[in-house]
Amino acid sequence: MWGYIFKRLVQGIITVWFIATATFFAMHSVPGDPLLNDRAVTPQMRANLEAKYGLDKPVLTQYFVYLGNLSRGDFGISFTQENRQVNDIIRQHFPVSAILGVLAVVFAAAGGVLFGALTALYRNRLPDYIIMFLVILGISVPSFVLAALSQLALVNLNSLFATNILPVAGWGTIRHMLVPALVLGLGTMAYLTRLMRSSMLEIINSDYVRTARAKGVPPARIFARHQLRNAILPVVTVLGPAIAAITTGGFVVELVFAIPGLGRYFVEAVQQLDYTVIMGTTVFYGAFLVFMVIVVDVIYGFIDPKVRLE
C-alpha cells in the first residue's frame, strides 16, 4: 500500500510538471508582448518582472527560471497589481473556494449515495420517479441558470419572511455558503445519483446478495454489509473527476453569488490578462486536482480489498 502511494505521488509530480509546461507554453504563444500592451505597467513592476523571469532572455531560459521558481513554490508577482505576490492572492482567495468546494462535494457525495440507494430500493415506485425526475433536471439545467433561479428564489423568500437568514450574495458565514454550495453540488449529485442507482440495481440482483438472503440475513444488515459497500465503489472511482468538476465549476457560482473565491479572481485576471496570476492559478489548480485524485485513489484502495492487497 505504501509503495502504491509513493508511486502515485511520483506520478503526480510528473503530471504537475506537464501541467506547468503546458501552461507556460500556452501563455507564451499568446500573440504580442505582454508588457507592451497599453496597460499600466510601472517601470518598477517591469524591472521586478524582468529580474524575476528574465523576460528579455530566450524562451527556454525563461522556462527554466519559471520551473525553478515553481519548485520552490513561488508563483511570482502580479502583472497588474504592483508587487503583489501570486502566492498571497492564492492564500487569500483559495480557502474561500475550497470551503465552497468541500461543502459542495460533501453535499453531492452524500446526496448521490443516499438518493441513488433510495431510488434503487424503491425501483419503479413513487420515490424513484420523483428523485429521477429531479436528477434529470439536475443533469440538464446549466449551473448558471440554477444559480440565477436560486438567487431569485432567495430574494423572494427573504422579502416574504422579511428576514435575511440566507443572504442573496456575499461571503462570510455558513448562511452565505449553504445555497451556493447546494447549487454547485447539484449537477454532480445528479450524476452520482444515477451512477449509484445503476450500481445498486446491479448489486441487488447479484449472486452474493442472493447468497446473503439464503443465509437468512435480515434486509437491513444485507443493505449495510453487502449492498452499500459494494455499490459505493464505482461512485468513489469517479469522485476524483467529480471534485475537479466542482472546483472549476465554482467559477460561475462565485460570479453569480459575488463570492470572493479564487475562481472569480481567475476570471478577472483573464479579463485583465494578468499573466502570472493566470499561470499561477492554473498550475495551482492543476496540482490541487492531481493531489485530490491521488487521495481519492488511495481511499478507494482502502475500500476495495482487491486494490489494497495488490
Binding site: 503530471t15 506537464f18 501541467i19 503546458a22 501552461t23 500556452a26 501563455m27 504563444s29 499568446v30 500573440p31 504580442g32 475537479a244 472549476t248 465549476g249 467559477f251 481567475f266 483573464v270 490578462l273 493566470i278 492559478t281 492554473t282 489548480y285 492543476g286 486536482l289 492531481v290 485524485v293
Partner: peptide, 21 residues
C-alpha cells in the same frame, strides 16, 4: 493521454482561448 486528462479542463479552455488570440 493521462497527462492531458490531468489538465484542469475549464482553466485550460480559457487558457487556450487567450493563447489563440
Amino acid at each position: 493521454a493521462d497527462f492531458v486528462v490531468a489538465l484542469p479542463f475549464l482553466l485550460f479552455m480559457i487558457l487556450f482561448k487567450i493563447s489563440f488570440g
